Simulated assay, not measured.
Amino acid sequence: MAFKLDQIDRKILEILQANAKITNAQLSKEIGLSPAPTLERVKKLETAGLIRSYHAQLDTEKIGLGVTTFVQVTLVGHRKSYIDAFVRKISDIDEIIECHHITGSGDFLLKVITKDIPSYQKLMLEKVNEIEEVDSTQSMVILSTFKNSKVLPIPPDK
């Protein structure tokens, strides 16, 4: 169920997505409210679950993570027990930073980030492909990224 947002709520969400480190004083100036009601609105958005967390976006190359891949995974079957077991097992693999249950020729799409190709190969051979629920994988290595936005488009009010 969608949360009812007014124009001020939308503006707060847009600003916080662009700069989560903004001070409440600066945020209040940008939306045209005093600091107390601004903070109250942010808390309301957090409590309602619209703002789930705040994160620092790191530069992967500068911290030594040079290879990002998408991996399409097909499971041996579609029983709930297979899906649950697979999700539980990949949740323990730090290099898998995203996991999406998908439609189409595969069952899951993973986003994997590693130091280099040998690290990626080792991860796939020793961890992912060793998961008994995995039937097959297809890897797509990212050569370059032209857009990597974490900003969600906020739908207008109807």
Rank of each mutant, 00 (worst) to 15 (best):
I12P: 03
L13I: 07
I15Y: 02
I15K: 01
I15D: 02
L16K: 14
L16D: 04
N19Q: 07
I22T: 13
N24F: 11
N24A: 11
Q26T: 13
S28V: 09
E30S: 14
G32S: 06
G32I: 01
S34G: 11
P35Y: 06
L39K: 09
E40L: 12
E40S: 12
V42M: 04
K43R: 09
A48K: 04
G49F: 10
L50N: 10
R52D: 10
Y54V: 03
K62I: 06
I63D: 10
G64A: 09
T68S: 13
F70R: 02
V71Q: 04
L75K: 06
F86K: 01
K89Y: 08
K89V: 02
S91T: 01
D92V: 06
I93C: 03
D94A: 15
I97G: 15
E98W: 04
I102K: 00
G104D: 00
G104R: 00
G104P: 04
K111N: 00
K111D: 00
I113H: 02
I113N: 02
I113P: 01
T114N: 08
L123E: 03
K127F: 05
E130A: 15
I131A: 02
I131Q: 03
E133F: 02
E133G: 11
S136I: 09
Q138N: 15
Q138R: 15
S139D: 05
